[in-house]
Each structure stands twice: as structure tokens, then as C-alpha cells.
Design a protein around this nucleic acid. Structure first.
Lengths: 226, 226
DNA sequence: ACCTGAACACCGTTCAAGT
DNA sequence: ACCTGAACACCGTTCAAGT
């Protein structure tokens, strides 16, 4: 990967920059997607861009700063879900599109868990979610807490359902359950197949999302606007 | 901290061990609780125990192995919730006790996110949760998926609500929201206080948990045993 | 049997230069 | 203006010894 020519043609003096912040962010995201969070080191990224390691520090303040840039890059180049129809359908589409993005960029989940992400690009998701719930009739505090619930489930599911394939995750779970003593774990050994199946995959996500939306809908109907 | 005498007095020959696996696990958990995941290094832990760094490798196979031991130690010395009454009350107690444990050991959440934890000690929580839902009348597959939903929310909430104090988290969120352009983020700037309040804290957790239980209860009443 | 220093192949980042 | 090698203070772990 050779860096393209500098884009700030308006610069007046001195050498033109070898790379841009955007190129750095894109290359970082590519390493994260391909090989995971542990593979992204400053030396490795500099090699990838064909520049000296320390050159990176002319563009980013620190490695944490670099991770923030990569998060932004992932948010930006994902198409946002188109939102229409009743609030429940809109919310389902928003959460599914978010779940897909996180599945495409598993390393982002680990970054998000390390520290809160409050950058404007990342907050677009919250803006859309709170907007849907407000329009549905939830008062502001319940719209905020309701979105937090949906957000927590969606990101949590991506984080806890192992990054490896759902199939491998279920196989590992089943093997672990098979080794449990039946008298101490009657429910897990009794529902072994089902528990392993629920560890990952689309069906488990959909079931959880539907139950949450059921709960919010009940709240709306019985308490807020009966 | 000086290591106590070896406990395996039945050993027949050679030098008695300087520490036990339990002592190592306890010291590791103490470092995790006090200073977080990044502070736990093999050298640091060995110093804490008054032994050479490489001595640790006589007791644990690798650092990953050590982290598993620490997770087990945290599960073991937490009192399990007493479960009685209707299923909804039991489940609420189980999730609250789990949320409190995770809050007491924030580093455990980061470990769990790194890879699935399928050790017997950690599965006791799943055993209890699936048992409650089965007894309530959920078929095995829905008990498994329903527990997965509750588990995902509880662990996700602990992971995403910043490890620092809830007060600091809300202040940071409010400052970030105050800097957003109002025309691009009408909902977040309109419900700024409420959104920041929902970022962390008991009330946001309780609201989410109640909506999930509402959704599961509706499922039970309308579809499973109407 | 059990313990451990030296060494290896890594990190992120500071510093002092280079052009 | 912009770039960068050397160096510092760390990692986890292998190896070859020590008692």
C-alpha cells in the first residue's frame, strides 16, 4: 500500500505531507478488521503506510487517538439504515444495521468497551435512536433510557458472542456443557443444545430484540398513552 | 504480602511450594480490583507475592490461564443471591446480584469480552438463570434465549457504563453533548440531560431490566401459556 | 521438586536530530 | 515543515541453570 500524494495542495511552504489523517484512519481500520486489535501496533501501521513509525505522531497524538479515528472511519463508511414506517419497524432496522456493522468490525466492540465513545460521529446512532422513541411518544427520559437498553443489548451481543464464527462458538459451548456434572448443573445439561444455540447467531439476537421491543411497546400502551 | 506456608503438607520430597494457585488467584484479583486490567503484569504479580517472575509459570500455564483463575476467584467469593418467590422476582434478584458483582470487579468485564468464559464456576450464573425461566414455563429454547438476553444486558451495561464513577460518566457525556451542533443532533441536544443521565447508574439499569422482564412476561402470557 | 536470572522479541513514546 | 532512528522503560515467555 503506497500512500497517495498529499491532498493539502494549499500548503505554502516546506515538504508536502506523506499521508493524511484519513489515510491513516483507513489503514488502521483495515488492520483491525483483518487481524484484530492486538495486531494494530504503531510500528505495524507505519510499515503498512510505508512511513517511519514516529511519523505517525505528526498526525495523531497517541495510540488512543488513533483508535478514535478508526472508530470514526467505520461509522462514516457504513451506510445508515433508511428509516420509515411505524416506530417499532424503524427501531428494528436501526438495531439490525448496527449489529451488522459491529459484526463487520469486531475490534470496534473491544475499543468501545475500553472507554466510552462520545465522539460526534459515533453519536449519530444515538441521535437516530432517541429520535425514533421520542416520535413514538416516549417522554425524553424514557426515550433516553429505552435507547440505552437497546444500545446495550446490541453492543453487548456483539461483544459477548465470540468473534469467531457462530458455529465454532456453539461447538465450544456444547463441549464445555458436556463436561459439566449433571447433578450440579441440571438445567444446563438438560437444555444443552438450546443453551449452546443461544450463545450466538441471528436467531438469538432477533429473539432478544423482539422481547425488548415487546416490553417497550407494552410500556407505551399501558402507562404512557393508554 | 508474604506468602503463607505451603498447604500441601502431604508432599513427599523436595522443597515445599512457596505459594498455592489460590493465593496467586487471590493476589491477581486484588490487583485487578485495585488498579485494573492493564496493571496486572506477571512481573508485578510476582513482586506482590514476593517470588520470582518465572516462578508463576510453575503454577499457571500462561497469562490467559491466570486471568481465568482470577475470574473463578471472583465468582467463588461472591455470595449467590437467594432465590424465592415468583419467577420475575427471582430473576430480578439474580440480575441485580450479578450487576453488583460486576461493578465490584470492573476488570472482569473486560476479560469476559476478550473471549467467552465457559468455565464451570462462571456457568453457575447461567444454570440459575435458565432454571428460573424453565420453572416459569418457558420451553428450553426460549429459556436459553431469554437468559441470553438478560445476561447480555447485564454484562453489557457493566461494560458500557464507564468504570469511573457514574457521576463522572454523566458529566463527560453532558459536555460532549453540549458541543454538538443542534441542527444535526436535534434529539440529543433536546434531551441532553436525560441522555446523559441514562449513560450510567442504577435507574437506567432498573428501567432496562423491567422492560425486558415485561417483554418476557408478555411472551409467557400471550404465546406460551395464555 | 521447585525456583529463577538472563535473554529474546516485542510494545508505546520521548528525544534529538536530520532535510 | 515535516520526517525519523536511537533510546527508554516497559511487556510475555523460552531457556538453561541453580538448590
Amino acid at each position: 500500500v503506497t500512500p497517495s500524494a498529499a491532498t493539502n495542495e494549499g500548503a505554502r511552504v516546506g515538504r508536502p505531507p506523506k499521508v493524511t489523517r484519513d489515510e491513516i484512519a483507513g489503514a488502521a481500520l483495515a488492520v483491525l478488521d483483518k487481524e484484530g486489535l492486538d495486531a494494530l501496533t504503531m510500528r505495524r501501521l507505519a510499515d503498512e503506510l510505508g512511513i517511519g513509525t514516529m511519523t505517525l505522531y505528526g498526525y495523531v497524538g497517541s495510540k488512543d487517538d488513533l483508535l478514535d479515528l478508526a472508530v470514526d472511519a467505520a461509522v462514516i463508511d457504513s451506510p445508515s439504515a433508511e428509516l420509515s414506517g411505524p416506530w417499532r419497524r424503524q427501531m428494528s432496522a436501526l438495531m439490525h444495521s448496527s449489529a451488522e456493522r459491529l459484526a463487520r468490525h469486531p475490534a470496534l466492540v473491544r475499543i468501545r468497551v475500553t472507554r466510552p465513545v462520545l465522539r460526534p460521529e459515533a453519536l449519530r446512532f444515538g441521535e437516530a435512536g432517541v429520535g425514533i422513541l421520542r416520535a413514538a411518544g416516549f417522554p425524553d427520559d424514557e426515550a433516553a433510557k429505552g435507547f440505552r437498553l437497546l444500545f446495550t443489548f446490541t453492543v453487548g451481543f456483539a461483544a459477548l458472542s465470540p468473534a469467531s464464527s457462530a458455529t465454532a462458538a456453539r461447538r465450544d459451548a456444547e463441549q464445555a456443557l458436556a463436561r459439566l456434572p449433571g447433578d450440579e448443573y441440571p438445567n444446563l445439561t438438560g437444555a444443552r443444545q438450546e443453551f449452546a444455540a443461544a450463545m450466538a447467531g441471528q436467531e438469538a439476537f432477533d429473539y432478544g430484540l423482539e422481547r425488548i421491543l415487546d416490553g417497550l411497546e407494552a410500556r407505551l400502551k399501558t402507562t404512557i398513552s393508554p
